[in-house]
Computed example of a mutant assay.
Amino acid sequence: MKYRHRNEPGLLPLLVEVLEGTANLSGAACAGRPELFDEAAVDEDAQTVRYRHRAAVRICSTCPALDRCRQWAESQKDLGGMVVAGRAPRLPGRQPYSERTQKG
């Protein structure tokens, strides 16, 4: 029985296909700190999530890739409950008093 040789496109075309449409966020300040930006864990209390999301937003505010990240974020349908481009998701429940009294 003869086997037909499949002509696979190779690694480079596969990488191009996988990475197509992703943003170039080289130099992003969030690199290496996903735990601050991630959505709430199932057993995580809202106060802890707000604390780490505020820290993530502060990191974003000084990020050299912020504009590129915002452009990418605006093209996405759903970013879930994570901090992206300096924007924290609205969490269920009442915001702490300090956040309710601070207006831009």
Rank of each mutant, 00 (worst) to 15 (best):
R100Y: 13
P96Y: 13
Y97T: 14
R94K: 15
G27M: 08
V49F: 05
L15D: 02
R70P: 04
C63V: 00
S98T: 14
W72A: 03
R54K: 11
E74A: 13
V84L: 06
L12I: 12
R58H: 10
R70I: 03
K103Q: 14
S75I: 03
A88L: 12
R87S: 04
R54W: 04
E8C: 11
R90E: 15
P34F: 12
L91K: 11
F37K: 02
P92H: 14
E44F: 09
E99M: 04
E20P: 00
T48V: 12
Q102D: 13
T101Q: 06
C69Q: 00
S61D: 11
W72Q: 00
E17P: 07
C60V: 01
A88W: 07
R54N: 11
E44T: 09
P34C: 12
G21N: 07
K103S: 13
P92R: 15
R70S: 03
A65C: 10
P34H: 12
K2C: 01
R70E: 02
A40L: 05
L66Y: 00
R52N: 06
P92G: 14
G80M: 08
V84F: 05
C30Q: 01
G104I: 12
P13H: 00
K77R: 09
R100T: 15
D38W: 07
Q71P: 02
R50M: 15
G81P: 03
R52V: 05
R52G: 05
P64Q: 13
E20Y: 02
R87A: 09
V84P: 02
E35H: 05
S98M: 14
T48Y: 06
V16S: 02
V57D: 03
R6Q: 12
E44D: 11
V16Y: 01
L91N: 08
V42H: 11
E39S: 07
E99L: 09
V18R: 15
L91S: 09
R52A: 07
V16I: 03
V57H: 03
T101E: 07
E20T: 07
S26Y: 08
T48N: 09
G104F: 13
A40P: 03
R54G: 08
N7D: 14
